[in-house]
Simulated assay, not measured.
Amino acid sequence: MEQLDIKLLGREYRVACKPEEKEGLLAAVAYLDGKMRDLATKTSSAGERLAVMTALNISHEFLQLQRVGGFDIPTLKRRIENINGRLDTALAEQESLF
Rank of each mutant, 00 (worst) to 15 (best):
G85D: 10
A27I: 08
S44T: 12
Q3F: 06
K7I: 05
E2M: 12
A27T: 13
K77W: 00
R79H: 14
I83N: 04
R14E: 10
A27H: 08
R67L: 07
Y31W: 06
S44M: 07
D72W: 00
M1R: 03
N57K: 13
R14G: 06
L4Y: 01
R37Q: 14
N57D: 08
M36W: 00
R14P: 02
F71M: 09
L32C: 10
V68H: 04
L76I: 04
L9K: 08
K18E: 12
L4I: 13
Q3C: 00
E2Q: 11
P74W: 10
V15W: 05
Q66Y: 02
P19K: 11
D72A: 13
K77E: 09
K35C: 10
E48C: 06
K77Q: 11
D5V: 15
L65N: 11
V15I: 11
R37T: 05
G24E: 08
L65R: 06
Q94Y: 08
I83V: 13
V52K: 06
T43W: 03
A90E: 15
I6T: 01
R79D: 09
T41V: 05
F71D: 07
T75M: 06
E81H: 04
P74M: 10
I80P: 01
F62N: 07
Q94H: 14
E2F: 10
A40Q: 12
P19G: 13
A90Y: 05
E95S: 15
V29D: 02
E2T: 04
T41N: 08
S45K: 11
S96K: 11
Q64T: 13
T41F: 01
L76Y: 15
A92F: 11
G10S: 00
T89M: 09
Q64W: 00
A40C: 12
G34F: 00
M36D: 07
A46Y: 08
C17N: 03
L39F: 06
L63A: 12
S44C: 03
P74T: 09
Q66L: 10
E12A: 12
E93R: 10
A90I: 09
S96G: 14
S44V: 13
R79F: 01
K35W: 04
T89S: 15
K42N: 03
A51G: 02
P19Q: 13
S59V: 03
L50T: 07
E61R: 04
Y31L: 14
R78A: 11
K22N: 05
M36H: 04
A90H: 06
V52Q: 09
M53I: 06
E93V: 07
M36I: 11
P74L: 12
L26F: 01
E95W: 09
T89K: 14
S59M: 09
N57Q: 13
K35A: 06
G85S: 11
S59P: 00
C17S: 01
I58R: 00
C17G: 00
D38A: 08
I73M: 03
E48R: 14
L32H: 02
K35Y: 06
P74A: 08
R86Y: 05
A55M: 01
K42Q: 15
A40S: 15
D72P: 00
E81W: 07
E61P: 05
L8V: 07
L8D: 02
L76F: 15
V52S: 05
